[in-house]
């Protein structure tokens, strides 16, 4: 199965483990990925906050390049939810809004490019794994089932909403990722927050808003006794992982909820070494959780029992304490 691949900026940087784990499992899934050459940033949620038509021209260049380089596949796959949505939205609006289509193509013509709306299908990696590879094939590939690992399946927002092309079974309660995790042998916990927002770029704009949204998700996963929260979006992973520490400082809590990409768990279940899957690069170490399935993780972990719930208020005068709450990736 051949697809064009739009990695996006995050997969090359903060979400490198996502790219590495995808690269590690791609062959087993018989996915052949052809990267769109010289792709540019999709603009995230920023470009269209400042400019309207130019934001679509920015994405339009990627669509035009994909159309031009298309060789055996008209599908562009994105693994980042924001990239996926931006590509899908621009494709859709160029198809349905003639004026916008004209503007974008007039702009693209300046760079000797053109995009014929409707000629590219935009799909998310999870959609392709679930629908094209299929659960039967996945089950056959599992050599190290994730038995005993309790997983909270977290989607975030932009993969299932607004779902321009109706690809998912629900914008609020999708079940695809749960099915995939079960196929890997994991125990999927009930996680009602599964499509709630991770706070997106609010970590940079309003810490109060951001930390509260992050807290709700980490609290939810902890409350339902997940060992690990699995995600499919670089922004969600970064906010819930790197900012979990900041959030804990903000609320004086000591949650420890490791956040991994679904592709990393797929790799583990397929018997691939954790290091090859980028495991160990997360801020909140997954080592302890993954010890349950006997996966050796190249990282140090704090000496702790189960992930602790919210710390009780201490009575009396504050006493100096040596913080052992987070490993924070420290050596």
């Amino acid at each position: 199965m051949k697809y064009m691949f739009y990695p996006g900026c995050s997969l090359h940087r903060s979400a490198r483990p996502y790219l590495d784990s995808l690269a590690a499992i791609q062959e087993k899934l018989t996915m052949e990925l052809q990267e769109v050459e010289d792709w540019n940033c999709c603009g995230a949620t920023e470009y269209m906050s400042v400019y309207r038509a130019p934001a679509h021209a920015l994405v339009g260049r990627n669509l035009a390049l994909a159309q031009q380089q298309s060789n055996g596949s008209d599908t562009v796959m994105a693994a980042c939810s924001a990239c996926y949505l931006n590509l899908e939205k621009t494709e859709n609006y160029m198809r349905t809004d003639e004026e916008l289509n004209n503007k974008v193509n007039t702009a693209l013509a300046e760079g000797d490019l053109h995009y014929d709306a409707g000629s590219i299908q935009v799909r998310h990696l999870l959609d392709i794994i679930y629908n094209d590879v299929g659960m039967d094939r996945i089950k056959n590939l599992v050599t190290n089932p994730l038995e005993g690992l309790k997983v909270a399946a977290y989607y975030g927002c932009m993969i299932v909403r607004p779902d321009v092309n109706q690809r998912w079974n629900s914008p609020e309660y999708p079940t695809v990722l749960e099915e995939l995790m079960e196929a890997l042998g994991a125990e999927v916990i009930d996680f009602p927050m599964k499509t709630h927002c991770c706070s997106g770029h609010m970590t940079q704009i309003s810490s109060d808003v951001a930390y509260e949204l992050i807290r709700r998700l980490i609290y939810g996963a902890t409350h339902y006794e997940a060992d690990i929260l699995v995600t499919l979006c670089p922004m969600c992973q970064l906010n819930l992982d790197a900012y979990q520490i900041e959030m804990n400082n903000h609320f004086d809590t000591d949650y420890v909820m490791p956040i991994l990409y679904f592709t990393q768990l797929m790799g583990l279940a397929f018997g691939i070494e954790p290091e090859e899957l980028g495991i160990g690069r997360e801020f909140v170490s997954a080592k302890q959780a993954l010890a349950k399935i006997g996966a050796p993780v190249p990282d140090e972990v704090p000496e702790k029992g189960k992930p602790r719930r919210k710390k009780k208020k201490e009575e009396g005068l504050p006493m100096p304490q040596v913080s052992t709450r987070f490993n924070g990736g420290s050596k």
């Binding site: 949620t45 927002c157 932009m158 909403r161 607004p162 779902d163 914008p171 609020e172 499509t195 709630h196 927002c197 706070s199 997106g200 770029h201 609010m202 309003s206 808003v209 949204l213």
Partner: peptide, 10 residues
């Protein structure tokens, strides 16, 4: 303050 979660939209 819109976080682009599209919950209102759907």
């Amino acid at each position: 303050y819109c976080v682009s979660c599209y919950l209102c939209t759907v």
